[in-house]
Write a protein that binds this DNA or RNA. Structure first.
Lengths: 251, 251
DNA sequence: CAGTAGTGCGTATGGCATACGCAGAAGGGG
DNA sequence: CCCCTTCTGCGTATGCCATACGCACTACTG
């Protein structure tokens, strides 16, 4: 709402974009957006997103709860800044001339790595499309990867959304498994086999023959290598994009 | 934790599976799981997931807050039941002999319709893989759709996860747009063009040339037909699966 | 040396999930 | 037929949460 440049962004987000220079008036701030966001991210990494409360973050910084509101308009803004911080700047782009498929695959893997390092990101309640510096930088990388494809801009966006959606949903499965492990204890194997056992007990094979067949095959009883799983799906997605690219650029 | 059949499921979930007959002892229950879940779903549909609190649901039923806990062990259980209720039973399967691609596409569209009718579902904080009757039924339908493909069970699961992940992430974009419309008001067009304008102001064209080019092209300024958008991505995903299927079954 | 904008933060409000325990209802065993 | 076990609804209380508001204070600007 407060809107000095007409961006319609919150003050804290404008600060993240490097606008909004500090006016030299009142007392020197004892904290900084950066320190607050760092503390919040550290807390989320160590104890999960649930541990991130305004009071707890303030305690981590040795400040009072309400002092944070001098830097952040609301908790949702803090969430947005946390996401920007955690996704970070994208890695350097591949060498020019790299094929779109290789470039897009690398982009997907890099994004997955960032999410894997910060599984709490997938639990942050989302409100809208992210307009933070780092997410725009990632977006740029994705668009650049598609430069040689001959796709129009609309198709490029759709492809980018498709790939990053896939990465998110795959990472979400990891986060779910991780949550189950934290909640009930045990190894991934134990969690998976317990899950399969429960399903076997509940799902009547007459009503759900295909599920029963799948359970009987044993694939549910132990987790695949997550990298293999990710590669498999990513290959499908890239194959699908390739079909489109080949149609647009037959040569 | 309470575990009469060794399923390891919560009491309310066992009730959803039809286990756990009512013991004829104490006073007749004045509520029912079904009524509670219905009220909660209605509330979420009308006022958003944020309106769903134990107290508010109870008020809707003319009961006290704490009485709900005789039916539901915790709010998370209520969430799970809400999701099961909202996704509902899957529509009847396609005629036998329908090709896998057509069947899988129909499955994806049906799932999208269910999500579109209940956008709040995408905001429910997830905890793990769903083990509810309806989600298993949906799963069954997906596996059945892949019956003729010759894929092994592990690949079928991956394909199912890929498609439903795509549906979820696409629906998530719809939910984001919807949230932005509710929050700031205006039509989808206005929301999109405001977004594009903000981005144009923030993203330096020198640092983000591909993004700038995309913004200049104007595709960001108005929302596509959402059905077109969905079809586009779904076609990519199905094309990718097709490549795999054709490789496994060249004939 | 005022005035003023910005600071940290104590206090208060209203919402939330939920633990606990009591009073009463209903069926079952003697 | 009656008591006892089991289950019900629910009032109360606890502790957490985000955050509005206002006060005291600080450091720069004119």
């Amino acid at each position: 709402m407060s809107d000095s440049d007409g961006t319609g962004l919150s003050a804290s987000l404008e600060a993240a974009w490097g606008l909004r220079e500090r006016p030299g008036k009142g007392p020197r701030p004892g904290l900084s957006l950066e320190r607050i966001v760092d503390a919040a991210v550290g807390l989320a990494a160590a104890e999960g997103l649930g541990a991130v409360s305004m009071g707890r973050v303030a305690k981590e910084l040795g400040a009072s709860t309400m002092s944070l509101y001098r830097y952040v308009g609301a908790k949702d803004e803090l969430y947005v800044l946390m996401l920007d911080r955690a996704i970070g700047a994208p890695p350097p782009p591949p060498a020019p001339g790299t094929g779109w498929r290789e470039a897009l695959a690398a982009w997907a893997w890099q994004q997955r790595d960032a999410l894997r390092r910060n599984l709490w990101m997938l639990r942050v309640p989302v409100s809208g499309p992210p307009i933070t510096p780092n997410s725009v930088a990632w977006w740029e990388r994705g668009m650049v990867a598609l430069d040689g494809t001959g796709l129009d801009e609309g198709a490029k966006i759709s492809v980018i959304l498709l790939v990053s959606g896939y990465v998110r949903s795959e990472a979400g499965l990891m986060a779910d498994l991780d949550a189950a492990i934290r909640a009930t204890g045990g190894t991934p194997q134990q969690v998976m086999s317990r899950h399969a056992r429960t399903l076997r007990r509940l799902a009547d094979p007459d009503r759900y023959p295909a599920v029963a067949r799948m359970l009987a095959s044993g694939v549910m009883d132990e987790p695949d290598d997550p990298d293999f799983e990710f590669t498999f799906g990513l290959d499908r997605v890239l194959d699908g994009i390739q079909v489109l690219v080949d149609r647009v650029t037959p040569g």
